[in-house]
């Protein structure tokens, strides 16, 4: 019996995402997937580091608006916290709380995306575009790839929220909520590296 029915919703079940073989497979598979994603971002970081010096006169430190970036960072890190709270609610079997925290996470994700879009718009205005220099290309590739991950995450979690409302927490749905949480943490961690390598190091002129 793979799916132990809908009773999990009201009963406290520790780690419902690992209650079935399918669930365990999904969690392990997702961890491995994130391993691959790490290489993906690693390659993008390497590309950025290799090419950021070729900026065609546009200097990173003149470009970056650190206040804006700091706010974006704060928002995304907060969303990481709310996604932890959602996962904890999942482990308590409290569907309602979980959904509420996921909603907060999505709202924060949207805010981050809004700031990023504004930021990109602002840079393009200053002549720092995808085609203006290797620095521009590698900057938008790295940061844009992360942004695309955030956008995908926001869309995915939104779908999961609707499913959570309709289906509750079961051994079938629990792994979905759990891996979405993993994913969200992952893109937060990537952002920490982007913040350091792209913005902080750019600001001090490395």
């Amino acid at each position: 019996m793979s799916h132990a029915s809908h009773e999990g919703e009201n009963k406290i079940m520790h780690q419902p995402e690992k209650a079935t073989l399918e669930g365990r497979n999904k969690v392990l598979g997702f961890w491995l997937f994130l391993g691959g994603e790490t290489v993906l971002f690693g390659t993008l970081f390497a590309t950025f580091i290799a090419l950021r010096g070729e900026s065609n006169g546009v200097l990173a430190k003149d470009l970056f608006d650190m206040t804006l970036v700091a706010i974006a960072t704060f928002i995304l890190l907060t969303s990481s916290l709310t996604s932890v709270l959602a996962t904890q609610a999942l482990h308590r079997g409290n569907a309602k709380q979980m959904i509420n925290w996921l909603i907060v996470t999505v709202i924060l994700g949207f805010s981050f995306l809004g700031l990023e879009i504004y930021e990109f718009y602002h840079y393009v205005h200053l002549g720092h575009t995808f085609s203006s220099s290797p620095f521009g290309s590698s900057f938008y590739a790295l940061v844009g790839f992360h942004g695309a991950h955030v956008a995908l995450g926001v869309a995915w979690i939104t779908i999961l929220i609707v499913q959570g409302m309709r289906k509750g927490i079961t051994t079938y749905t629990a792994p979905k909520f759990y891996v979405a949480g993993l994913y969200w943490h992952f893109i937060d961690v990537v952002w920490v590296f982007i913040f350091t390598v792209v913005y902080l190091m750019g600001e001090v002129g490395f």
Partner: peptide, 15 residues
Amino acid sequence: DANFFDVASGGSPVL
């Protein structure tokens, strides 16, 4: 029109 590998604008073929 990106410039990752475009030598003229500073890209790197060795990359």
